[in-house]
Amino acid sequence: MGQSFFEFFRYLSEYAFLQNALSVSIVLSVAYSIVGCFIVLRGLALMGDAISHAVLPGVAISYLLQISYFVGAVVFGLMAALGIGFVKENSKIKSDSSIGIVFSAFLALGILLVTKIQSSVNLNNILFGNVLTITNEDRILTYVVSGIVLLAVALFYKELLLTTFDETMAKASGLPVKFINYMVMIMLTLITVVSLQTVGVILVVSLLITPAATAYLLTNKLSSMLWVSTIIGVVSAIIGLYLSATYNLPSGVVMVLAVSCIFVLVFLFNRKTGLVWNKLRLRI
């Protein structure tokens, strides 16, 4: 293992594609770990899952029109988010059901389109991603989108905090609650779309939710949660890329497994709320 770790660094210094994959993974993991905190705290985890699946027809249509997959995916992601809100607000159907209805319809449409234009779309890459094959164009797009999202969080930090913690007070005291809520949905869509290249449609929600949920178990302050989530996201991205490059495993899948292992360890063994410690305390 030690030898392969050094080999990884040797490869890293030699191969530009590996350097690109590492830098993209780190930048992206910072962005999704931070956005993920607001998604977890606002109870929007299912929405993240829905958006990630709903972008599939957008990706397929983009290939068909020979435009960047990003444009189509963002358009369909936002359409799904708005569609879910529309069904919920204009009927007595609850949010989880409206998410299920809209996202499965979008996913079905996406699969249909991908199957029909299979020759030009690599379904495997959309479903599971591969950061090692990321193009220069997508790399720059990832940096720009992540930068915009992080800047938005920094600029609107206090509004994000208050609207997430106490939306009623935020509304009553005149804060732009609707604007912030739309901003969160747009950030979620953008990060989901740029993460597709790394982990694909199926697993992207794991990277959005798991680092944040793990940090949630460990912290008492939002600022600490953001830091801890970021560290967990970055560490699991590096571990994932290292194992992927060294043992020729799919990068996204390994990243998801790495962050899931960290979650299980924290869930069981953290000193404050860990399941094992709680059981031990009860016995004592």
């Binding site: 913690f165 912290t219 939002l222």
Partner: peptide, 11 residues
């Protein structure tokens, strides 16, 4: 919610 008493009042 991950917020301390101080931060809650600060909002």
């Amino acid at each position: 919610f991950p917020i301390t008493v101080f931060q809650c009042v600060l909002t």
